[in-house]
């Protein structure tokens, strides 16, 4: 049986390789693969990487845009953290009494979290811009909802993975479910919660930059404007600021982790 299966798999591989080779004939090699001046543009962009525009105006603009991007991301992740704590704890089911109600609670709140994160932050941004207009709230809510969904789901899983023995011991000492949460579950997962939230904070900064393409201001918006004007040196200035933001948050996250490991 095994040799036959192997044989079939080899046949499939050969077939797929032939298919790929055949598909190469369909490509028009004269035009269409690369933009006629594409290679030149790529070289220009690459060259600009080493000559970012460091004039005072651009730096001032970059600092201001970084600040906006960071502010959206920070507000968004803070709101997401609150949402995630509330929904994540509910979705873990540890507050429910009986087996039946625990199952129902888990099912319902995991569903809510799934809905929140099924829709990408960019789509949320469109929806909120359409309803609120170009306000900071649109950006903050657009970030908070999907990130709350992601964080909440992970928090719920972390809480469910806490070893059972210490919790049983707390119950035996007469602790209520909420007391078990504060004395058992949350202290056990606090460190991983913080470190995962910090990682998501990093992602939120990137998302916040991208989201500004929608027209909400920030680093992404400036990158788009400079790209449209073919000012690749400015593009790189803004990119370096974005990278700097990520590195700063990573450093902060490492500091927090070290302090908690004590």
């Amino acid at each position: 049986m095994l040799s036959f299966d192997l044989h079939k798999r080899k046949l499939l591989t050969a077939f797929l390789l032939l298919l790929f080779a055949w598909s190469l004939f369909g490509v028009n090699w004269q035009e269409g693969v690369l933009h006629s001046s594409g290679l030149g543009t790529a070289m220009e962009i690459f060259a600009a990487m080493f000559q970012p525009d460091l004039s005072a105006d651009i730096i001032r603009l970059a600092v201001h845009s970084s600040w906006i991007t960071l502010a959206y991301a920070t507000a968004g992740i803070s709101l997401a953290l609150i949402l995630a704590l509330v929904f994540g704890i509910l979705a873990s089911g540890v507050l429910a009494g009986g087996k039946g109600s625990r199952k129902m609670m888990k099912g319902f709140f995991r569903g809510v979290l799934g809905f929140m994160r099924a829709i990408h932050e960019l789509v949320w941004a469109w929806l909120f811009v359409a309803s609120f207009g170009l306000t900071p709230y649109a950006a903050v809510f657009a970030l908070a909802i999907p990130y709350g969904g992601i964080l909440g789901r992970i928090f719920a899983d972390m809480i469910n993975d806490v070893p059972e023995e210490p919790i049983q011991a707390l119950r035996a000492a007469g602790a209520s479910r909420l007391q078990c949460l504060f004395y058992g579950y949350l202290p056990s997962v606090k460190a991983s919660m913080i470190s995962y939230t910090m990682y998501r904070y990093e992602c939120a900064v990137r998302s916040s930059a991208i989201m500004s393409f929608v027209g909400l201001g920030g680093l992404g918006y400036q990158i788009q404007l400079s790209l449209d004007d073919l000012h690749y040196d400015e593009v790189w200035t803004f990119m370096y600021f974005l990278i700097l933001l990520i590195i700063l948050i990573d450093g902060w996250s490492n500091m927090l982790r070290k302090r908690m490991a004590l």
Binding site: P166, A169, L170, A172, G174
Partner: peptide, 30 residues
Amino acid sequence: RARKIGLIRQQFDLVGQLAVIHNVLAGRLA
């Protein structure tokens, strides 16, 4: 029940991430 019956098992009964004092005070949670 907590006033009547107490439980002690092998060592992984405590919440390792809490300070000692909180694990001790957990005996008062009831």
